[in-house]
Amino acid sequence: MQKIIKIIILFIFLFVIGIFYISLTRNTNYNTSSLINKETPEFKIISFDDSNFYTRDDVKKNNYTLINFWASWCAPCKVEHPILMKLSQTKNLVILGINFKDKEPQAKIFLSELGNPYDLLAKDKNGKHSVKFGIYGIPESILINKELMIIQKFVGPLSVDDYNNIIKIIE
């Protein structure tokens, strides 16, 4: 009996230290990956020029849609912008830009200076829509397929690796 208890105690400590060791080498960056492989939530978001609303129906029309949250005040958004420009030239992919908590004149200047990669452009003035997509800091991008399934989430600026990844998926 005493022997069993001793073995159990040893085992518990080994287990705890083992887990500590594993955790040391893990990437601690947080992403809301729980949304991947789930259906896109319903949304109705006003277009940038106030002319109409975009909903999931606009996503269904395309093979793939990339929803990109951006703002003129966000420095990393400038970093990822060239990648978005490159992505805008690919077929099979529609980019829905959502201008996040921004002032319109500044957003316009941003796009006229750096180019407009967005096929569809909407705005999220108070940020409420971002919550539906699990956005916690911009830029963030979400790749969705025709069946409205979220395939991939990108937290932070899109990198060249992300670009290649997206190209691989949509082809």
Binding site: N126, G127, K128, S130, V131, Y136
Partner: peptide, 13 residues
């Protein structure tokens, strides 16, 4: 933060 303010709005809704 921006994030906290957004969440506050959504919670209220």
């Amino acid at each position: 933060s921006d994030f906290a303010q957004t969440i506050k709005l959504v919670v209220k809704d």
